[in-house]
Design a protein around this nucleic acid. Structure first.
Length: 208
DNA sequence: CGGCCGATCCACT
DNA sequence: GTGGATCGGCCGA
């Protein structure tokens, strides 16, 4: 399909910083669906279509690391202006990647949960030590980071640079094709655990 | 300091 | 469906 073709010199589809500095994190999380995320490290280009995201809505969201205005060395990057990466270690082994959004001092973030691998599939398979099949494409935030070679040292990295970036190839996911579900693994968040802040493309196989 | 636990994943049963 | 892996962050003593 047209959407899986990539023109190396055509960077005018890259999402600008202004995409991330807006205030509505759930809207941004939904708009990231269907976009393509790329990483370029060690001369290896990898990327895929974003199919699942979760929104974390600032200091009032009990599921967020920044809940109640909590500021630590780890979460400080969430308080910077949108358009940078927040990557943290989960369960001692998984690097979870977030798009930091909103303005400075507004610690919103979007967790990347799944992609359909498009670019550099063999490279991603080598990183994961397994074959990527049509059934088992990269679902799960830890696996996505592993496939894209993103880790905690990428915290603070620009999302509009030449190492990590997102492209809009004109794939528009209609709202009624987006599942709105509770977020995963946030049972501790009391009433906020039920918020429908997880967004999934309902018919993602049609993109293939 | 010590202890608990996590925005997960995989191999089992 | 269940449990182990594995370790930094966070909190309370």
């Amino acid at each position: 399909m047209e959407i899986i073709e990539r023109k190396y010199d055509n960077r005018n589809t890259k999402l600008p910083k202004s995409f991330y500095t807006r205030g509505q994190v759930t809207k941004i999380a939904k708009e990231l669906l269907g976009k393509l995320i790329f990483t370029f490290t060690n001369n290896e280009l990898t990327g895929g279509i974003i199919t699942e995201t979760e929104a974390y809505a600032g200091i009032s969201d009990k599921a967020s690391h920044a809940y109640n205005n909590r500021r630590t060395k780890r979460t400080e990057i969430m308080y910077s202006e949108g358009g940078v990466a927040y990557v943290y270690l989960c369960y001692g082994m998984h690097n979870l990647f977030n798009f930091v959004t909103n303005k400075k001092e507004k610690p919103d973030a979007v967790l990347l949960r799944a992609i359909i691998p498009i670019e550099g599939i063999e490279i991603m398979e080598a990183r994961m030590g397994r074959e990527i099949t049509i059934k088992g494409f990269t679902d799960g935030p830890g696996k996505v980071s592993k496939a894209l070679k993103i880790n905690v040292t990428d915290t603070g990295e620009s999302l509009t640079g030449n190492r990590i970036w997102v492209e809009d190839r004109g794939v528009n996911i209609k709202d009624d094709n987006i599942l709105k579900l509770p977020r995963i693994g946030v049972d501790y968040a009391e009433e906020d655990a039920l918020l429908p802040y997880r967004f999934v493309i309902a018919d993602e196989k049609k993109l293939l």
